[in-house]
Structures are given as C-alpha cells and as structure tokens.
Design a protein around this nucleic acid. Sequence first.
DNA 1: GTTACTGGGTTAAAAAAGCAACCTGGTCAT
DNA 2: ATGACCAGGTTGCTTTTTTAACCCAGTAAC
Lengths: 209, 209
Amino acid sequence: MTEPTGLRARKKARTHDAIADAAISLFLARGFDQVSVNDIAATAEVSKPTLFRYFATKEDLVLHRFADHNGEAARVVRARQPGDSPLTALHRHFRAGLDRHDPVTGLNDHPEVVAFHRLVFGTPSLAGRLTRYLLDDEEALAGALGPGIEARLRAAQVLAVQRVLARTNWQKIADGRTAPEVHPEAVADADQAFAQLRSGTGGTTHHGS
Amino acid sequence: MTEPTGLRARKKARTHDAIADAAISLFLARGFDQVSVNDIAATAEVSKPTLFRYFATKEDLVLHRFADHNGEAARVVRARQPGDSPLTALHRHFRAGLDRHDPVTGLNDHPEVVAFHRLVFGTPSLAGRLTRYLLDDEEALAGALGPGIEARLRAAQVLAVQRVLARTNWQKIADGRTAPEVHPEAVADADQAFAQLRSGTGGTTHHGS
DNA sequence: GTTACTGGGTTAAAAAAGCAACCTGGTCAT
DNA sequence: ATGACCAGGTTGCTTTTTTAACCCAGTAAC
C-alpha cells in the first residue's frame, strides 16, 4: 500500500512544495495582487511553464490546500461504518477535525493559518474561486448521498452548514481568542447544526438501505 | 563579462556540487573502495546515469578538483604580461598560490584538505589517475611554451618541480606543522626551484619573441 | 487612438534526468 | 569450472524541465 518513493516522485513532491511555499510566503508578505507568477517562479527557481504544470491558475497556488480536501465529504460518506447514517459520519468527521484543530474547521490559531485565512477571504478572486471548489465538493457529496434532487439539496445544506461553522470559528479566532478556549463552543455549535440537519431529514437514510 | 546564470546553468552547477560533495564526504568517511557509486548517487539523490553524465569515472568524483586546475599552467603562460618570461609568470603564480594557501600548493592545513590529500595519495587508483591529469596539463603547457621537443622538456621539468614542491609542503603539514609556520620555507623552496629552472634555460625566452 | 508595456497563461523544441535493463570484469562459493 | 553475485559503466526510452516565443486582456503614455 506504500506508494512508490522513487527519485522522480520525491523530486516532484519537492518541486510542488517549493512552488507552493514560495507562493504563499510571497502572498502573505505582499498580498495576492502585488505578486506576479514570474516572481513566484523565480523564487521557487522553476520556469513559468513548470509552475503552470503544477498549478492550473494563480489562484490554485493558494487554494490547493483546499483542493487537497476536495471530495472529502463524499469520501467520508462512502467510507462510513455500516449502520451509520451519512450525517452521523459527517458529524463525527467534523468533530474529529475540530479536535485536531484542522484549519478547515476554522479552529486554528496559528498565526500563519490566521494570516492565510485573511489572505483568502480578503482577496475577491480567491474567495470567488474557493466557492467553485465548494461546488465540486458539493456535487461529489451529492453523488455519494444518492441520485435525485433530494440528495443534492441535502449535500448543499451540509456544506453550507460546515461553511458557516468554520466561518464562525474563524471569526472568534480573528477576534483574538485562542483555539482551546473556543473549542467547546465550536463543538456545541456543530452538535446543534448537525442536529438541525438531522431533524430536517429525519435521519432515515441508513447504510445498506 | 558575467557568465549567464540561467536556471539551467544554476541547477546543473548545483547537481554537480551535490554529487561531488556526497562523494567526497562518503569517501572521507569510509574510504574510496568502501563506497559504491550507487551509494553516492543515492546520497546525492540522482540516478546512476546522471552521475556518470557529470563525472566520467569514479575517480573523477575525487579528482575533478584537480581537473578544474587543468591547463592552468598553460593559461598562466599565455596570459603573462608582456616582458615576462614564462618561468617568471609561473613562479609568480605559484607564489601567489602559496600566499593564499591554495590546496594545490600543498600548503593548507585545514583538516578537510589534509584528509583529502591523504585520501588521494593513499588510494592507488586515485594517485594513478592523477598522474594522467598531470600529463594533460603538461601537454597543454608544452603547447603554450612553443613547438618542438625543447618546450616539452621544459614543461615536464616545470610540472615535476611543482609536484615536488607541493608534495614537500604537504609532507610538512602532514607532520603536524601549521601552514603559516611552513610558509617561509615553502617560498624559499619555490624561489630556489624556479631559480634552478631558470639557470637550466637561461631564461632567454621572452614574450613577443 | 495607437503604441507599448505588463501580467496571466500556452506552445514547441531541446536539454536534462529518471528508470530499467544490459554489458563486463572480478570475486567467492559450491 | 560453473554459477551467482556485485560494482563500474552504458544504452534506449520516457518523463520532466527549461527556453523563448507567442496570445490575449488591461492600462498607461503620448
């Protein structure tokens, strides 16, 4: 199961990281629009075509971290334990993210993470493209939940709820509070949110239907 | 006059250095014959064919430092000031090497350099190949000195003398003395050696003959 | 109102690197 | 002596990267 660690793969990963690191650090230092892709390529010591072979657009240089999580909700649903409803699995997964202070939950007070979030939400083109990622995620989740309009609706609701939860947590962090301090509220909010989702669906859709 | 520093050239230089550094440090740690080229390639994180694209033989992994100086004597002669004899130019150059403790003069007491010399002279295949480098150097110097057998003879004598000087200096260092301490003797030895060379040739061959 | 620059993104060709398989010459068992 | 193995070095093929040139959109200068 171990993916082959040849020279090629190792160097590819390093190049990817070098580009991403150069991009993020330049963006954080000077702002998204004040950095050209040429600057990034130069800093990462790769050519421009190489940069675009690793990242399709300038925005993706920032958003690949979210892209890595793409389809995660769908995966969680598909990999859930027999007997668990999709919502239960998603709830557990979000809760686990909270516990490990996963940045995607908004519950992370590392200065770098906070600055990163400010960068994303403070740059229109980034925030814009981020929503497109969410749409993909939503579509995948819908596919995992089943066919028909009902699944799509529920998928949209779930992701909307998660977005609000993350945004709420991030806001509290941005106001200067610490992650451990906010954690209990975040858990309570999540519990309430998922309970509300469940009431809407009745929680009737179980595995192996 | 600045040589173009493109990405390609920079990365090539880095790869070259990475291989050379990996090789030297492994050789110093375990000895020439106890290290395989596979080890070196793995440590430098390149493939074996790549290693051999940069260095023709395993020996060259050690000797490229000498190879870099290849043809130096010839260059010195060709670039000498008008009015200087070849011997004067070579003498001045050797003297300058002494003053800056250039490792090729043997007058360098840095532990790494000493260990490097011990490696070279203590490994037959290395010492052997080193003489081949000297032969190339000799041929180039002969070409710079002029045509005919006379130039060849003088070239051979010059390089032989330099080799003895370097070896003498190195021996004193190997005996535990410091480079600054040995420096005056080294200068005196060089002066005497070049004086002797001059007496043999009469020093009559001047620039712009 | 062109002209010219800048920035995001692409293309084609050539250099460089990786990989796997091979050749050769030694050494060491059986 | 035969066969297996290892180390130095090579070969052919594929993937990756560089390079330089280009396209298109905005925008500042004249």
